[in-house]
């Protein structure tokens, strides 16, 4: 068996893949957070709960309506996005003129409500969601065994992140969005419906979280608590990357997933804390974050 610094390559690549998958979720969630923060100036604490909601909706679609993985991948994000946009219209929109902290507190409360409601209905034990049969099985790449589904998650998330980046950086809609992030009043003066754009942006960011949730369903068991621990790690990712840049959020997400995977190989005890340690180091060296602008 091949080894690398005394570690079997099979284990090394296995953990790296796991890290890459975690990184894919960090990237999708921090991308959504950065988008929402850019335009709404709100740190969406309920992002983790909405990610969980995506997975739960997929599970419900399968077990109640008999709709499988592929329809769920479309339907669940739409359901969650509509839910998010209703929240934005009815609650968040009242806070834009206040201190940013109120947005954090409100979305924290929403996260508690969503999580509590699903816990009340479905308990806290994980519910299995099987891998769709088209993506079952795996490939033997010689140096490691790659389950197809895991490859699909990494690929799908890369495409989604890249797509979002292109949408924001290269299209007219994206240009409006970036302009509104800089100066919403001026953009509104040019006749663009900024409140509508804000709502759609929130819906889009939330939909990304929900897609991540559906993608995660077959890997982790679906349970009401799956989002809350993830969101705190994603906050650390966002502090490390800085919320200023879309690409920065994506790169930081994947990078930290890999760092976490590597730590699992070489020093497993620190795997759950390594991202926070990286955050502490970044705060010491570059407080604004790796891709952040000095404010």
């Amino acid at each position: 068996m091949m080894t690398f610094f005394g570690i079997p390559t099979q284990a090394l690549f296995g953990q790296l893949l796991l890290g890459l998958i975690n990184g894919a979720f960090y990237a999708m969630l921090s991308l959504g957070l950065a988008l929402i923060f850019g335009l709404l100036n709100i740190v969406n604490f309920s992002h983790g709960a909405l990610y969980m909601m995506g997975a739960m909706v997929a599970w419900l679609l399968l077990n109640v309506l008999g709709l499988g993985y592929w329809p769920a991948l479309i339907v669940a994000p739409i359901v969650v996005a509509i839910f998010g946009m209703i929240i934005e219209r009815t609650m968040l929109s009242r806070l834009y003129k206040l201190d940013h902290l109120y947005g954090l507190l409100l979305t924290f409360g929403l996260a508690l409500i969503i999580e509590g409601a699903f816990r009340q209905l479905y308990g806290i034990s994980g519910m299995p969601y099987s891998v769709p049969k088209e993506l079952a099985g795996g490939w033997n790449l010689g140096f490691m065994f790659l389950p197809i589904y895991r490859g699909w998650v990494v690929g799908a998330s890369l495409v989604l992140c890249l797509g979002s980046w292109l949408l924001i950086e290269k299209t007219k809609l994206g240009a409006y969005l970036r302009a509104a992030t800089e100066n919403a009043t001026l953009v509104q003066a040019f006749g663009i419906n900024v409140p509508m754009m804000v709502t759609l942006t929130y819906g889009f960011g939330v939909a990304l979280a929900a897609i991540a949730g559906v993608l995660a369903a077959p890997i982790y068991s679906v349970n009401p608590l799956m989002g809350s621990n993830l969101i705190i790690v994603v906050f650390a990712v966002v502090v490390i990357g800085g919320m200023g840049s879309i690409l920065g959020a994506v790169i930081t997400g994947f990078m930290l997933g890999l760092v976490e995977g590597l730590t699992k190989v070489f020093y497993p005890e620190a795997a759950s804390t390594v991202i926070f340690v990286v955050m502490a180091i970044v705060l010491m060296i570059k407080p604004a974050g790796l891709f952040g602008k000095r404010s």
């Binding site: 206040l98 409100l106 409360g109 929403l110 508690l112 509590g116 009340q120």
Partner: peptide, 21 residues
């Protein structure tokens, strides 16, 4: 009554932020 504590706490957050800052 199980998770109702969490739900009520969340609701208090929402009400406080929206109405009684």
């Amino acid at each position: 009554v199980g998770s109702w504590v969490t739900i009520i706490q969340g609701s208090i957050f929402v009400v406080c932020v929206l109405l009684f800052r």
